[in-house]
Amino acid sequence: MSAAVLEVSDLTLRFGGLTSLDKVSLRHERGEVLAVIGPNGAGKTSLFNCLTGVYTPQEGTVTFHPDGGTDTAVLGRKPFQVNKLGIARTFQNIRLFNALTAVENVKIGIESHQKTGPIGAMLRLPRTRREERASDDEAFRLLEFVGLKARANQVAASLPYGDQRRLEIARALGTKPQLLCLDEPAAGTNPAEKRQLETLIRDISETGVSVLLIEHDMKLVMSVAANVVVLNFGQVIAAGTPQQIQRDPKVVEAYLGGGESDDAATTPPAKKVPPRKTSLKKPED
């Protein structure tokens, strides 16, 4: 059994009376791809926000085990400090620096861990020049890695949707994470882009970076994830390999609201709209 890179135990997050996460525990093995799935509103993104310092949960602990370092508590740190620990993330609704070029976006990620201050930048000291060169090289290497080298000097907002997704991943990888959290990277992408993404996630995993993946696209999850955790109403209802999850009756029920369907694994539950009765329409309609 390999060592864990991240351990979450009994994480509870409340917004007033609403319990968004209820004693969530999970263990992420180093180097593996762990997927977190669940219906809309199950608390997946809340979990991500707790792990990356955006929300402060009321209870529970999150422990990060850096490679060769000492175990560190993640909770109570600000987002940029969490990133410094080695946990990078992307956003469900892409948040690139839109007016900057692709390569500038990636460089910002790389340079957030550099040391040059304003004095060094103004005087262009030797260290500044060294760091600048390193940042350029690394940025182009990462753009090549995600397949965007040809678009390095294009403005981020002008890139096609799938490229923007991959650029965001490149920017996150620029911060040299040990754990990469991807929040629905396949949302809104077309089938070709999905296949590219699948390869990319495998490639990232092969470089030794552990990937925590929130995803609705079951085909993607089944093909890249080693383990899956299923959330529903803020609770972990199942955990295991994709095959185990596919057969779990609780998962099928959570996704389809009853045991009547037998193709839970193949139906992407992503944008499943809850059945709405016409009689329940809002009065103003």
Binding site: A88, N98, G109
Partner: peptide, 27 residues
């Protein structure tokens, strides 16, 4: 020089999207 440096790019990032800038490791 400042604008065309790590510091200038970090400012640009903050100006464009502070949340993303923080998540990208910028204090």
């Amino acid at each position: 020089r400042l604008d065309d440096s790590r510091v200038g790019r970090a400012w640009a990032a903050i100006r464009e999207d502070e949340v993303a800038a923080a998540a990208t490791g910028i204090p």
